[in-house]
Design a binder for these strands. Structure first.
Lengths: 339, 339
DNA sequence: CTGAAAGCGCTTACAG
DNA sequence: CTGAAAGCGCTTACAG
């Protein structure tokens, strides 16, 4: 049988209250008794029972982490890394993170994650693009939540985002400074605001250097309104090169796409980076194993998770505070696919 | 304020005990009162409070899922899928799954996952290769656990494994039936029993068809004693082709390696599958986006998770039962890299 | 078939 | 600075 607070109290010759106080670092306990209690706890290997504690405090001690099923199942490991960052951070405050996925076609009445239906979390993190109905549900329930790498135009929610705009801007600026003139963009659905921002960064960097003339953008960009994939990248590269053989660089909306773009370029017979430089975004693990190794914008995924956790804790402690957006900055990593 | 069991009892004009009985489908309650209680629960949107319940039953309602950090962070999404399968299955019995990672250098005194240190789980699943010290720790603690896709030679633990041997056998047999003669093997560390079994399947299929003469195996196999990766595959393919240009097929210990092997072959100028057929193992998501699309052994990852959960539940209900191994069968999927 | 009561292990005002 | 007591919301023998 595991030791209880009662056992500790008896052995220390004090009341349960006192033990509880030192356990929670609350109030003042004579440092002498405190030390005695502490050492007895250690010696009896005392661990407070979570459920008893939670029952008394009326908290769950859990945080939900929800992401779209496709993001967890498919090639994107981005949000797994973010999860890990949250998990690390949550250790400090003894929260457990409950990871679950939701389907695209989400109905709060039908598909609500269990921990939401049974009120088993104190707050939740939403990673990436998730159903709007879910966000609304949480908002209505007044359950503290943060969006990660996602935002809704016109809405004001707590959110941790990547500095997509500046990352893209810097990548393209780097390409320009290396002498590239015909810089293409290959991307996916603009439903995701990150991609929209990356495109904006691309465009404004070109504008800054006065590179946009006539139908530059039309001729040099390929976007398909679906979830990004390697396949899209390959298709995009092939089509663009046909339209404009003078392309000497491609900035891609993410690494997955970029890896497809590289395949496409390779099939066309052009050399990377001599003929065409390629830069991706995200720095997913396969990026550095690609051949050639992919230049990309590195996103500190663990830090994002950590920041999301911190923000969520702040909201949970102070639910009425005005929502805020925290932007995580990113870095360009030049590998073999550009210089 | 959320409704409690007391509220329900009062409204239904019965005692808390009765409500609790219908809640837990235990004992006999007059079907009339039962219906009444049920409908009142629904109407008041009653959700039993987990912590209270757990405190009374002395269970945690949680299951731990532990995997090696490298497996979660790197290219392997295998165990994420298995996790998802467990998560789905756990919904039925209202278990929450707590996912965490451990480092390679694991010391039970230092790096014990929180939910283990604080006894916050009723059982745990270990996915893939994990530190032996961890397994021993769980064994000593008498905490129910299952190994997934891993086993320790000479030890008898509850375990859910893939039918690696037969999968490999079938892949190689398929290659042989397609007329391939010089079938190579590229693999990684034999520390992992799965890889060892896959190699055995490879070898015995060759034996069955009497293909092994002289230094066939030496000349046709490349294994490096490190974690598998794309890089190893590429290196392996290059070296083997130099040693034996007659190679007309490669069976790889997993898809990651296979994708590297394909790059290596492509660089050598040989065609896939005309000159050399390639088959992988696992069917990770990128396999079907590879170019050429990778033939592989499909492993039902969700089913593995589901089975692991079921097994774990059985052990938790009956801890003294003799350990058992459950083997999940696999299928060959022929795509573009072989025929 | 149903109720009264004790108990699970903690926290938290409230006294002192 | 510390103790006594009530309470968190459920379950489970035990009576009846």
């Amino acid at each position: 049988m595991a030791a209880t607070i009662k056992d500790i109290a008896k052995k220390a010759g004090v009341s349960m209250s006192t033990v509880s106080l030192v356990l929670n670092r609350k109030g003042y306990v004579a440092s002498e008794t405190k030390q005695r209690i502490l050492s007895i706890m250690q010696q009896m290997d005392y661990k407070p029972l979570r459920s008893a504690r939670k029952l008394a405090t009326q908290k769950t001690g859990n945080i939900g982490y929800i992401l779209w099923e496709g993001h967890f199942s498919e090639v994107e490991m981005f949000y797994s890394q973010v999860f890990l960052g949250m998990e690390y951070a949550a250790r400090k405050n003894d929260h457990y993170i409950l990871l679950t996925t939701v389907k695209e076609e989400f109905d709060p009445k039908e598909n609500l994650p269990r921990f939401l239906r049974y009120n088993d979390v104190d707050g939740v993190a939403l990673a990436g693009r998730v159903p709007h109905a879910l966000i609304e549900y949480l908002d209505n329930q007044q359950l503290p939540f943060v969006l990660i790498d996602y935002e809704l135009p016109g809405k004001n929610y707590n959110c941790v985002k990547i500095d997509n705009y500046n990352g893209a801007f810097r990548a393209v600026e780097n390409l320009i400074n290396a002498g590239r003139k015909q810089i293409a963009f290959v991307g996916g659905t603009f439903i995701h605001p990150s991609i929209k921002d990356r495109y904006r960064g691309y465009k404004e960097a070109l504008e800054k250097y006065n590179l946009i003339h006539n139908d530059y953008l039309k001729k040099n960009s390929y976007c398909e309104d679906v979830e990004t994939s390697r396949a899209i990248g390959e298709k995009g590269a092939t089509k663009l090169l046909k339209k404009n053989p003078a392309i000497d660089a491609v900035f891609c909306c993410n690494d997955t796409t970029a890896m497809g773009v590289i395949s496409g370029i390779q099939k066309s017979g052009k050399r990377i980076p001599q003929d065409i430089a390629v830069i991706g975004f995200d720095d997913i693990p396969p990026a550095k194993f690609n051949s050639p190794k992919l230049s990309t914008i590195q996103v500190p995924k663990l830090d994002i998770g950590k920041e999301a956790y911190k923000l969520l804790c702040e909201i949970m402690n102070n639910p009425s505070r005005a929502p805020q957006t925290r932007t995580i900055s990113v870095d360009l990593i030049v590998r073999e696919s550009s210089y």
